[in-house]
Design a protein around this nucleic acid. Sequence first.
DNA 1: GTGGGCATACCGACCGGTCGGTAGGGTGGG
DNA 2: CCCACCCTACCGACCGGTCGGTATGCCCAC
Lengths: 191, 191
Amino acid sequence: MSSATEQKIIDAAVRLFASQGYDATSVQEIVTAAEVTKGALYHYFRAKDDLLFEIYRQLITAQSADMDRIIELGLSSADTVREILVSLVVSTAERVDETAVFVREMHRLDEARMTEFRAERRRYHETFLGVIEKGQADGEFSSAVPADTVVRIAVGVVNQLPVWYRPDGAKPPARLATEIADFVLAGLTGS
Amino acid sequence: MSSATEQKIIDAAVRLFASQGYDATSVQEIVTAAEVTKGALYHYFRAKDDLLFEIYRQLITAQSADMDRIIELGLSSADTVREILVSLVVSTAERVDETAVFVREMHRLDEARMTEFRAERRRYHETFLGVIEKGQADGEFSSAVPADTVVRIAVGVVNQLPVWYRPDGAKPPARLATEIADFVLAGLTGS
DNA sequence: GTGGGCATACCGACCGGTCGGTAGGGTGGG
DNA sequence: CCCACCCTACCGACCGGTCGGTATGCCCAC
């Protein structure tokens, strides 16, 4: 449960962190943008980096839930991979700022949170990896390229999306998602 | 021409920026790590962010030169793409720290340098794009997926490489490069 | 002797975080 | 019904400390 004030602060923080970076954004800037005061911020958050962690948590939770939901559908390997990629690209496009912050400032987490976060990311990777390896074992995918490299490539594109994606660009997110999925599947099934 | 002191400063800066981030690294830390003093740093650089720009410049210059050299060989489209990818992956693996800094702190450049940098990156992208489009026009590659998406995917993997690549990992850079190139080429030629 | 290559001491701005205080809505004893 | 009490949400001036940058001068190679 998060109050309206709390969400306003997070929204402002995401926007500012994405455009200027975490360290370059002062707490004062955040509260000014959120139209609250420092007192309010430190009432809800113990420290500035709690904001970062909260942003990550929201993002990872949503992505993991998406993937789990898709896998449970029990589609073919190819369709599962396609759905995972499409949902990942579309949801990332909807949250470019969060993703940009996440990619750039991840390393600023403290030890404990970094460990927790790495575990969650590892789980995500290995689930995705499992889907591809199953497809290769079934003969549905080519085994020419190792599954872990394919996962790296897929995750790589998505994480770089904030660098070039513009909401007002020529290609809508769904189109981009389809193109990326097509390419990855062509690489998996071809040759 | 850069003096030994100048290069020591840049090397130390790259290492520290990569592990802690630009803002979280103080000028004092840099000069201590480089075993020089602030006087020396401000003798060679006008400001802290000159260091950033110098790091980018060295990276982009090297990559552009690599690509130009490969294109001049006049290989087939497939071999040209393969060589570009292999050289990109290998040289990025050799410069993980520089790439990590580049990806994470790029947005901190001031207006003028950002414009200059964007022009250089654009040139790189369009050259790569041209190679792929030529292959598609010749019928050597499939046109199923637009060339610009392929470029985005390729550059995306490389830029995310610092996140997961470890020099002491199981796969040597050349192996990784081959796998990535195989996958991209499978996507380009298949289906 | 003079200028490039530094060293050292220092400045002012700014930042994250604190802390004493307040406004206002709920609530329970009389 | 009401008022004393309290508690949550919030305010904003302020502090210790750090940081990028500068001013000044030494020193040695030419």
